[in-house]
């Protein structure tokens, strides 16, 4: 028998003994499920974690987290736990649970279980070391999985919300037959500028608009790229047979447009939104007359 064989055999026996120990561990954790869970819950309450949840909710969640945790240690696979962590995150994120709380409770559970192991094996320090060798990597992997699952879920929600904010922030509104209004608020980045142009051009086609009022009162600053993009948008709209009136240019934006040498001759600008709408009505041949005179008798 060569040296390599010996080494292999010894490492195999180590891994065998690790799984044997883990089995023993799991049996211990399953046996002491009720008191350990109680202890864990007490520690969670003491640390003021998950205060957004009621005691009953906390108890139910703690039970299933505990079971999933033990199950993950037992099967030594993390897939089921991953799925559970994602599901849990989906449910508790809307309650306003923070990342530190989730990481906190998982680490507390890890500590509570480690202590119970310590209490059980403290008489035999050599066995104790081996038990901890088996327990720690598995417990760390579990803690990592739950925390990462939570953070990923949060990030997914944030991405979704960003997308929906982008959608919402550029409505193309029909003010009258053949007159569209595009109020732009907030910061314009190149991505949003592109999206805005697309929505406007499709809007023109869908509503057969002849005049578009783009109101940029709510835009504080505009960089060269976006200013150029605005000019391109106005030109594109013209190719679709619509005239664009830009209203509410701030002094800063006016300066930017002049400094970049944008061909302002193509852009019809009016001071404010009211003036813009009046100009658009004039172009479309509308005449707004107050009805009060007719309404009076006589």
């Amino acid at each position: 028998m060569g040296l390599a064989d010996l080494q292999q055999k010894s490492s195999k026996s180590t891994s065998d003994s690790t799984s044997a120990l883990l089995r023993e561990l799991v049996a211990h954790l399953a046996q002491n499920r009720a008191p350990l869970r109680e202890e864990w819950l007490r520690r969670i309450t003491e640390a003021r974690l998950l205060t957004a949840m009621s005691q009953d909710e906390l108890f139910a969640e703690a039970t299933s987290v505990y079971d999933s945790y033990v199950k993950a240690l037992e099967t030594r696979t993390l897939e089921a736990l991953q799925a559970y962590a994602q599901n849990l995150s989906e449910r508790i994120i809307p309650l306003g649970v923070e990342t530190h709380e989730i990481v906190g409770i998982v680490l507390l559970l890890r500590d509570v279980l480690a202590r119970s192991l310590f209490a059980k094996y403290h008489t035999d320090s050599e066995l104790m070391n081996r038990v901890l060798d088996a327990y720690e990597p598995a417990a760390n992997a579990v803690a990592l999985t739950v925390s990462v699952g939570f953070v990923q879920e949060r990030e997914r929600i944030i991405r979704e919300q960003q997308a929906s904010i982008r959608e919402l922030s550029t409505p193309v509104l029909q003010v009258r037959e053949r007159l569209l209004l595009l109020p732009i608020l907030g910061l314009i980045d190149p991505h949003r500028a592109r999206q805005l142009t697309g929505q406007l051009l499709r809007g023109i086609r869908a509503t057969r608009a002849k005049v578009v009022v783009i109101d940029i009162t709510g835009v504080a600053a505009m960089d060269t790229n976006v200013a150029n993009h605005l000019v391109l948008t106005v030109e594109s709209a013209r190719l679709l047979g619509a005239r664009v009136i830009v209203t509410g240019l701030s002094p800063e934006i006016a300066q930017t447009l002049v400094n970049i040498g944008a061909d302002l001759g193509k852009i019809n600008t009016v001071g404010d939104l009211q003036g813009g709408i009046e100009e658009a009505e004039r172009l479309l041949g509308y005449k707004v007359v107050p009805t009060t005179i007719e309404a009076q008798p006589g």
Partner: peptide, 24 residues
């Protein structure tokens, strides 16, 4: 002129200046 085509043309500097264009 289709919306996407219009934007692509303008970006390439092919704006059809001085020529009337309508939706349909």
């Amino acid at each position: 002129i289709q919306p996407d085509v219009a934007f692509a043309m303008v970006r390439m500097g092919l704006g059809l200046e001085g020529i009337t264009t309508t939706l349909d």
